[in-house]
Simulated assay, not measured.
Amino acid sequence: MKDDIPPLRMTVEAGKLTPADAFSAERLESYRHGTTMFVQPITDPQSKKRRKFWAILGLVIRNCNTPWRTVKDAANAIKRTFGLMDDGGTTGNVRIMYPRSLNDLSEPEFEEFYEDAMLLLQRITGVDPETLAKESPGSDAPLLQPDEGSGDRKPSTASDAAAAPDLKAEAIDKFLRLATDKHLTPPEKRSALATVEGDWLHELPDKAAFVKACSETTARVIEGELKAQAAKRYLSALASKPEENGDEAGES
């Protein structure tokens, strides 16, 4: 799958290249000083509106309450909502779908996607993303989230154990925030739930049973079978279990 994250934008100066925006500057700083890089000079492949899309997603993630952790998570969820998915075949009789690259869209197709995405973001956050962009001058592209531009998140290891309770609490909050979002219809919530579950399976790969319990409990809240407060009590109790039992999802 092609990478949607915009390439570094550089300005040619006397004998050197310098970052042309905050996004490029931050990405460049993520590399070790002295690193040799191969650069293929090309004109800007992205329209102003495509760069604006990524800039707005960055602002929304940093300033609004959303069910997503990163710009990439948000973009993939929006693509899923509007059916921008590629068929990845089946695994164990389960159909696998992958988000398409926005670079595959023609300009008219992207214009339509952009307008739909802005309306969806406004419904989810209650904030007009265009207005948010105007109130944040100088943002040509999104600042990187911790895992953006540097590949996938690192798998959890034993050294990450101390952070696990906080991550579990954050996962519970994100799942239930989706379930109780008044700006989304139940079908939209169910569609977004699969993305949120996938994101957290990626974030907590050794806590798959816990993430599955969060997803199944959230689905019950969406369907009206369980109150959000009861779901939070159940999941919080599950998260606080000792490590050896923390992934054993009981019945709520």
Rank of each mutant, 00 (worst) to 15 (best):
K2Y: 15
D3L: 13
I5L: 13
P6N: 15
P6C: 11
P7I: 03
T11H: 02
A14F: 07
K16C: 10
L17D: 01
L17Y: 01
L17F: 00
L17Q: 00
T18A: 03
D21V: 00
A22S: 05
L28R: 05
R32M: 09
R32T: 04
H33N: 12
G34F: 02
M37D: 04
M37Y: 06
M37N: 05
F38M: 15
V39H: 00
V39E: 03
Q40S: 07
P41C: 08
D44W: 07
S47N: 11
K48C: 01
K49H: 09
K52C: 00
F53Y: 13
F53C: 01
F53Q: 08
W54F: 01
A55D: 05
I56D: 01
I56A: 00
G58Y: 06
G58I: 06
L59G: 12
L59F: 13
V60D: 10
R62K: 15
R62Q: 15
A75W: 12
N76G: 13
N76I: 09
A77R: 13
T81L: 15
L84I: 13
D86W: 07
D87R: 14
G89K: 10
N93E: 13
V94W: 09
R95I: 15
I96F: 12
Y98P: 05
Y98C: 09
R100T: 03
R100K: 09
L102C: 04
P108Y: 13
F110S: 10
F113C: 02
Y114F: 08
L119Y: 06
L120C: 03
R123H: 06
R123I: 03
R123S: 10
R123F: 00
G126L: 06
P129S: 05
L132M: 06
P137E: 07
S139Y: 00
S139G: 00
D152Y: 10
D152G: 05
R153A: 04
K154V: 13
P155G: 11
P155N: 05
A158G: 12
A161G: 08
A164G: 06
D166A: 15
K168H: 05
A169N: 14
A171M: 11
K174A: 11
K174F: 11
L176T: 08
L176C: 10
L178F: 05
A179N: 01
A179G: 05
K182S: 09
K182T: 08
H183Q: 14
K189A: 08
K189V: 13
S191H: 10
S191W: 04
S191P: 02
A192E: 07
D199G: 11
W200C: 04
L201C: 12
L201W: 09
L204Q: 04
P205T: 02
D206L: 04
D206C: 05
D206A: 05
A208K: 10
A209G: 12
A209I: 04
F210I: 02
A213S: 05
E216R: 02
T218Q: 12
A219W: 02
A219K: 10
A219I: 01
A219T: 04
V221H: 01
G224W: 12
G224V: 03
L226D: 02
A228T: 03
A228C: 07
A231G: 02
K232Q: 06
S236D: 09
L238H: 03
L238Y: 00
L238G: 06
P242S: 09
E244F: 06
E244L: 15
A249L: 14
G250F: 04
E251I: 14
